[in-house]
């Protein structure tokens, strides 16, 4: 029996899973949509990974979870380590690109920048209150223009004179975009303009005050959009690398952190057949009225969180 490590990254849009060996080689991986049901997505993910893995050779001895549903999923799969997505991405990317200096990441709901020196993350920033220029903005604009989000790159590549779109704020960008369309700007120019706006917004917001040094790696769902990749290369004046496994970097990082961590616990594929449910309760013991999340496996409470103080502690 050889040791293997499982990493799961549950984001708002997609759920990613990867199993690695002691040398960080990818044994198997899976990428599915979360569809608003992180528990269901993880069960489907685990089922698919089980089919790909030879149980007579490999034994999963540590599990890491990351992404916005990391806590919930970590409870369900019995994770040995639960880490935020920034650390996971930094660890995953620097393992495969030790020479990287800047990691750009734009996901469905948020965007981040991670600065790296000598293979170690040294600084990062994340979008503050504003979600402008994330994947959600691109897909809503693609919808307005009547094209699929995956076609954006193709359209943008045909543009000769990208339209100027106000980049400061999504709301203004959208009204500006409508205005430009009504003024008669060709669709491909407007689409190229949207890609430029996403980049300008990212650099002015998340990238503000950060020194972006080449080599640059671009990740997250939006990195699959060649229009935005080209806009980044133009704005930064250097090549931007998009790894075909870029979408797995968070899960990879979680698996690597699980391997490096001290916790050891054999992973049980039985989770895919276990009934989990989550109940939300209002504490009501003080005016904060915290929303407490209780996770049950069958009828047994396995974990709870969300309370600001011990008055709301469930166990």
């Amino acid at each position: 029996m050889k040791s293997a490590y499982l990493g799961i990254d549950v984001g708002s849009i997609s759920t990613k899973g990867v199993i690695i060996d002691d040398q960080n080689n990818i044994l198997c991986s899976e990428y599915i949509w979360t569809e608003g049901d992180p528990i269901g997505a993880v069960k489907r993910l685990v089922r698919s990974l089980e089919k790909q893995l030879d149980p007579s050779t490999w034994q999963i001895i540590a599990t890491g979870t990351t992404g916005s549903a990391r806590k919930l999923v970590g409870t369900i799969v019995g994770a040995t380590i639960v880490k935020n997505e920034i650390t996971a991405h930094a660890v995953g990317t620097t393992t495969f690109y030790p020479e990287v200096r800047t990691i750009l990441e734009i996901g469905g709901q948020d965007s981040k920048i991670i600065l790296v020196e000598n293979g170690v993350a040294v600084d990062y920033a994340m979008n503050t209150l504003c979600a402008a220029g994330t994947g959600a903005f691109l897909s809503s604009q693609a919808k307005r223009l009547g094209i699929g989000v995956e076609e954006i790159g193709e359209y943008a590549a045909r543009s000769q004179h990208p339209t100027q779109i106000a980049a400061r704020c999504t709301v203004f960008a959208e009204s500006d975009l409508v205005h430009k369309l009504q003024m008669g700007h060709p669709r491909e120019d407007v689409i190229a303009g949207v890609c430029n706006a996403v980049v300008a917004n990212y650099l002015n917001n998340v990238g503000k005050g950060k020194k972006i040094v080449s080599p640059v790696v671009f990740q997250g769902g939006v990195s699959k959009n060649s229009g935005v990749v080209k806009a980044f290369e133009k704005a930064l004046g250097c090549p931007v690398t998009v790894d075909p496994n870029g979408h797995l970097m968070g899960a990879l990082g979680a698996a690597i952190l699980a391997r490096r961590g001290k916790g050891r616990k054999a992973f049980d594929f039985a989770v895919e057949d276990t009934e989990f449910h989550v109940r939300e309760a209002s504490c009501g013991r003080c005016p904060n009225n915290c929303e407490i999340i209780c996770v049950y496996s069958g009828n047994t409470l396995i974990d709870a969180w969300g309370n600001r103080c011990e008055r709301g502690a469930v166990r």
Binding site: E85, I86, T87, V91, I114, V120, D123, Y124, M126
Partner: peptide
């Protein structure tokens, strides 16, 4: 993540 980055 900020604390992690510093520790890394």
């Amino acid at each position: 993540s900020f604390v992690d980055i510093i520790r890394l």
